[in-house]
Design a protein around this nucleic acid. Sequence first.
DNA 1: CTGAAAGCGCTTACAG
DNA 2: CTGAAAGCGCTTACAG
Lengths: 351, 351
Amino acid sequence: MKKDTTYYGVKEIARRANVSIATVDRVIHNRTGVSEKTKRKINDIIKELDYQPNILASRLASRKIITLAVLIPRVSEETDFWEAPLRGIKRAESEIKKYGIEILHFFFDLNDKNSFEEQARKLLKEDVQGVLLSPSFIEESKEFVQACHTKKIPLAFIDSDLPGQDNLCYIGPHLFHSGYVSAKLLTYRLKENHKVLVVNISKEIDYNYQQIEKGFRSYFTDHNQPCEIVRIDIADTDNLSVTNALTRVLHEHEDLEAIFVTNSRVFAVASFLKKSKRTDISLIGFDFLKENINYLNEGLIDFLICHKPEEQGYRGLMALYQKLVLGAPVEKVHFMPIDIITRENQAFYQN
Amino acid sequence: MKKDTTYYGVKEIARRANVSIATVDRVIHNRTGVSEKTKRKINDIIKELDYQPNILASRLASRKIITLAVLIPRVSEETDFWEAPLRGIKRAESEIKKYGIEILHFFFDLNDKNSFEEQARKLLKEDVQGVLLSPSFIEESKEFVQACHTKKIPLAFIDSDLPGQDNLCYIGPHLFHSGYVSAKLLTYRLKENHKVLVVNISKEIDYNYQQIEKGFRSYFTDHNQPCEIVRIDIADTDNLSVTNALTRVLHEHEDLEAIFVTNSRVFAVASFLKKSKRTDISLIGFDFLKENINYLNEGLIDFLICHKPEEQGYRGLMALYQKLVLGAPVEKVHFMPIDIITRENQAFYQN
DNA sequence: CTGAAAGCGCTTACAG
DNA sequence: CTGAAAGCGCTTACAG
């Protein structure tokens, strides 16, 4: 029931080195003001004893508080996607705040690059030691990353990556393979003519969407499955624009068997199919949004591909904590699982 | 950079209640020897301040070490399923051992009820405060649970449940719905005659398997999909018995389109289908075993249903930690997600 | 360059 | 039934 006494701490090191524990502390943390000689002596003893600092005691004694910042999209009416990462962030927050970690939140509008820049500016005014970022706007994010870099602030990315930036880590989907899995699932619903529509509903078509589509197409070429793939881009995300664009393309291609939506806006397409009574068309898209789940349950959406958004938020923050507080190494790239959600298993999904 | 002073600890509670911190400590831990009156007063202040104990300080000051025991199947040559929960257990272990938690491991042989009883006996000799159990053998487990009960040792179950026992929690699959999802997935592969084989490879056919099969059958009745379901039980798990049984049933029912294996032994069926060149038959089963993944990649298995075994181990241990160390409430039943694994997304699965 | 002392927020005997 | 004091393994001013 008692803790074994074979534990050696700073006290024992100090005793063996004939110095005070303050000096031992200085050496452990590489602080200045210790003679080379005592430093060597202490380091030798540390090695000999295989000393492991007690983080509990360390955090308890240290009155420093570590400030982390989060810069992600605001939860909007359009989509509740960002509720989940925020949930994960808050979960991490409540776990680590007792260790003297403080989290600052900055939210930007996904439809407004200016709001991103504004929030980024505000963030940089604070004295933060780490940043969790969703680099939604590529160019603006790169600039922000640069600014963090000069301030030596480590960054964790979630949801989408910015290749070639010197970030601490990326936690999010493998886009190519997500598209690949989507194609595989769609083939289950293909009957005769094998004609598929890829729909891109987004203001900008960036590297991310290209990767998804590339993965999607690769599945068919890899398997020598002939499949005619029609693609449309819908730049305006409002209902009317989507309806118009889809009406047009379905008129031109009456024999479409399935639709793949490259992001979470699959609910817009589901709504259209429902209204136009084209429930014969199979539909697949991304993300565990309430609206999407409703259409999944109605049978209008066949599959949703999800990447545990809540866990992305949680893990992102914990990666910064690991690095900054525990000084532990952090995995540079962590791909989330590619989860397949159907009407039958959705109730058990844990974001 | 400094900790904000808005934190209220035992000291502040003691000050407000006009008592010593020792008395506050007694109330916090429900120890005896405090008058009802001061108890009430202190509890009121605790509530008012929304006091959250500092676990770091608590564990640091307490020289008690808490011992938990794990009683699960040994990783065997037959199946590496139990590697995953063990991994999760070790992950939890390394997270909480710095808080003075010690874990004792007891492994039994899934083919040998005696080994379970023997290990259970050994476990009960130790002074443990909590047990993580996989109640694989029903009657023997019930007896063991009873013994723990008299010793007031809380139990967390993983992988399978023992209904009607007074356990702290169950963390594992929802069997009925797992069968249901399996049926749904199989329908994607059904063509004309809609004839399916359900295979049960197990020494005993207990409540668990019945639930899975019930879920499987319910899908077809719920959707008015006529489907002829043939079922066989293979009591001996060796290769020869499986081969013989399958040969016989495939001879009798040449027009089978798909096979559903109700547990992780789907690899045995895959191996048979491969040898007998019946790759036209769709196959679905459970669990992320190396052998299963190999057959998934070869295309012999179409889907695997998985329930995050690693996380079951992790969560099981953490539930005991939550209860015993933090005194926090624990969810009585936690169903794992019903994960759908295909060849295309398996590489990203995190057990 | 070094050390003595106070303190982090708790728990644990011990004394009354 | 209650409190004073020591201590967990560290860190942090402060003094020299």
